[in-house]
């Protein structure tokens, strides 16, 4: 007990208590530096949030981000892992290169990608798109375009995160027993059949896990938005966490921030339970 005491005290003090505090504060009117007395206001904060256009947009943006980034990033990571799971020369080097963006702090990644998305024909992405469309592409100002700002943030996030999933999937691929493939070969199964009937089912739990982690990361989306777009243009890239920080930190509305936190937690809990359920079905 004594051995576990420091860690338990830390978790109690800085995780459990704040978590309970969030639930409590969400039902009050707490505002830092406000002259109003602290009051219990019931569901007012939640009702206000759901009536707020910016917050509705934040929920929608997180949902869109998840729906695009999770499948695209997982498929890309799976493709990379499958490519690297062959007996090729130089695979260690390729693995290093694909994993490298993962160690880059998101703040730095965001700043570098601002230049990639620079407007005008000199911008890196603009000229690249002009090159591959043979000059058809009209230069755009990606981060100030209401339709392109969120996709731009998605692309940046996929670039930064794919390597992380790749190494987990690669480990999953390497743990599939070779005998299964041998047996399939003897039965005359082609490459595609082996992938469909052996690789995918064997990799299922790993894939479910990887998608869960990416989904939760998608809900946490913050740095890229804060640095690249400040939630704009006109809330086009705002997110749950961006709204929470805006409320609690920039506007001192701690109670509103706490209410957003509670909603955020419920979403994460929902996704986790869903993953447990899908992963468990497999064992039956």
């Amino acid at each position: 007990m004594l051995f576990a005491l420091p860690a338990l005290a830390g978790l109690l003090m800085f995780v459990a208590i704040p978590f309970l505090l969030a639930i409590g504060l969400a039902f009050t009117n707490l505002r830092l530096g406000s002259p109003l007395p602290l009051e219990f206001v019931g569901l007012t904060q939640f009702l206000r949030l759901f009536a707020d256009d910016a917050f509705a947009r934040a929920l929608l943006n997180n949902l869109l981000f998840t729906l695009v980034v999770v499948p695209v990033q997982t498929l890309l990571a799976l493709a990379l892992a499958l490519l690297l799971n062959q007996p090729l020369k130089g695979r260690a080097l390729f693995r290093t290169l694909f994993f490298m963006p993962v160690v880059f702090p998101l703040a730095l990644v965001s700043v570098v990608w601002i230049l990639i998305y620079a407007p005008g024909p000199n911008g890196m992405l603009n000229s690249f798109l002009q090159l591959i469309t043979l000059g058809e592409w009209q230069p755009r100002d990606f981060l100030h375009d209401p339709w392109l700002a969120l996709p731009a943030i998605m692309l940046t996030s996929i670039w930064q995160g794919a390597g992380f999933q790749m190494v987990i999937l690669l480990a999953g691929l390497q743990s599939i027993p070779e005998e299964l493939y041998e047996a399939a070969r003897i039965d005359g199964a082609g490459r595609w059949q082996r992938f469909w009937y052996i690789t995918l089912p064997q990799l299922r739990n790993t894939l479910v896990f990887v998608m869960l982690v990416t989904t939760i990361l998608a809900f946490r989306l913050f740095e890229q938005v804060q640095i690249m777009t400040r939630g704009g243009p006109r809330h086009a890239t705002t997110t749950i966490m961006y709204e929470a920080v805006q409320a609690a930190f920039s506007r001192q509305q701690v109670a509103r921030g706490a209410a957003i936190t509670v909603i955020f937690f419920l979403l994460v809990l929902l996704v986790t339970l869903l993953q447990r359920r899908i992963a468990r079905e497999e064992r039956l």
Binding site: F19, V245, T261, V268
Partner: peptide, 16 residues
């Protein structure tokens, strides 16, 4: 507690 990311407690922790 494992499933609680920092983001889920950032606001109350900030207040604390």
């Amino acid at each position: 507690i494992l499933i609680l990311p920092l983001e889920a407690i950032a606001v109350p922790l900030f207040y604390q």
